[in-house]
């Protein structure tokens, strides 16, 4: 039986998130128990294309570029539906960013970006493996190391 989730009026629906990554997406959007508006997280929704997927619906939130870039790292095939007055006004497919500024802390404790408040920079060096290099300490990381 399909799960019925209320529609949102204004906000964003993030679809085609790999199963299990929905919670991570909420974390990226900084949505926790203190978020006042409606939020729906559907996990393990059957999908023709990928078997199972997660979907996140958030009322009252439009995503900036930084957030979209971060989501692309955990959900490279995600689609964003921007909802206004209960209608989808825009559909976007996320794209793996070439570089990420100020999005993550560098996991290397010896990196200078952990010494002073410096805007971090990661460059996508191997997009197919989602591996990024810190623009300061030059260490390579897997996307999941940056997100956790």
């Amino acid at each position: 039986m399909p799960l019925v989730v209320e529609k949102i009026e204004n906000g964003t629906v993030i679809d085609h998130i790999p199963a299990g990554m929905g919670l991570k997406v909420l974390e990226i959007l900084k949505i926790d128990r203190n978020y006042g508006a409606r939020v729906a997280l559907m996990m393990n929704v059957p999908s023709k294309k990928v078997g199972k997927k997660d979907i996140v619906k958030v009322e009252g939130k439009s995503l900036d570029e930084k957030a979209v870039n971060k989501i692309a790292l955990v959900a490279p095939n995600a689609t964003l539906n921007i909802i206004k007055n209960s209608n989808v006004v825009e559909k976007k497919i996320v794209q793996l960013p070439k570089e990420l500024r100020g999005a993550f802390k560098c996991p290397n404790p010896d990196c200078v970006t952990n010494l002073e408040p410096i805007e971090t920079l990661f460059r996508m060096e191997k997009p197919e493996e989602r591996r990024l290099r810190c623009g300061f300490c030059e260490t390579m990381f897997e996307a999941k190391e940056l997100i956790s």
Partner: peptide
Amino acid sequence: HAKEGSARYAAQLAEHPVINGGDGGN
């Protein structure tokens, strides 16, 4: 400087050219 990436950061801050004389293990 012992911190990795410190010379890169210095180069960002300084108008004059910067040479890295060793930035930690990097």
